[in-house]
Amino acid sequence: MNKNQIIIKMSGVHFSYSEESPILKDLDFEFFKGDKVGIIAPNGSGKTTLFHLIMGLLKPVSGSVEIFGRSMEAEQDFAGIRHRIGLLFQDADDQLFCPTVLEDVSFGPLNMGKSKKKAIEISKRTLDFLGLSAFENRITFKLSGGEKKLVSLATVLSMEPEVLLLDEPLTGLDIKTQTTITRVLKKMNISYIIISHNIEFLEATTSITLTMHNGKIYTDDQVHVHIHDHAHVHGNVPHKH
């Protein structure tokens, strides 16, 4: 892990939707190139908010956000880095808005100024990588939930980002699609942050697990998230613990 190449640095970040209950309080967070981070925390603890602050979709009330060594303040600052960080939304229906799969996957590359030919080439390659080569001309809203999720991932990967932010990528998916996503993540040489409630998935794909509590991020050594199996002698007898 190259500790010199810092990608995200957040310091003293405050954020709240309403005055009374701040979501993030004095949050510090550093993310380096090559990091594979998992975040596991209860609902409403501000995980998605954290992602949206990194992407500049929300602005902190106070505190600073630095990305790729540059201080992020105005919308233009974020517009300049968004193609380098790919955010996979929780709901694939939010991400897929074009009529056909190929158009959706090439939307990012085209926005980045790639030629039509190049954009189609990248998109086809990305779909191929995810095992979706036959999907090009499929209508996005007629795909199944799992297919939608994979195509959403393709729309993010086609921008060839350096970092991925995955917001509950496995929620609502069948085992087969879950396995595909796990396999794809392990195959890629890319830094990422994954929000998930699935400990096994995070163990398989990430090297550190963080959690969020009271508007702050805690590392693995402060709050150790783990799974353990017990031998249970009275397993077949009804009883209380």
């Binding site: 949206h52 992407m55 979709l57 517009a79 968004r82 193609h83 790919g86 955010l87 939304f89 709901d91 229906d93 939010d94 991400q95 808005f97 190929l102 158009e103 090439s106 939307f107 990012g108 085209l110 926005n111 980045m112 039509k116 954009a119 189609i120 729309t155 993010v156 921008m159």
Partner: peptide
């Protein structure tokens, strides 16, 4: 709310108001 989220997702993919046709 859906419209907001879709627009955010589009901004994340570099949408600047122009729609390209393939």
């Amino acid at each position: 709310e859906r419209a907001d989220r879709v627009y955010n997702a589009m901004r994340c993919r570099g949408f600047k108001g122009k729609y390209y046709s393939l």
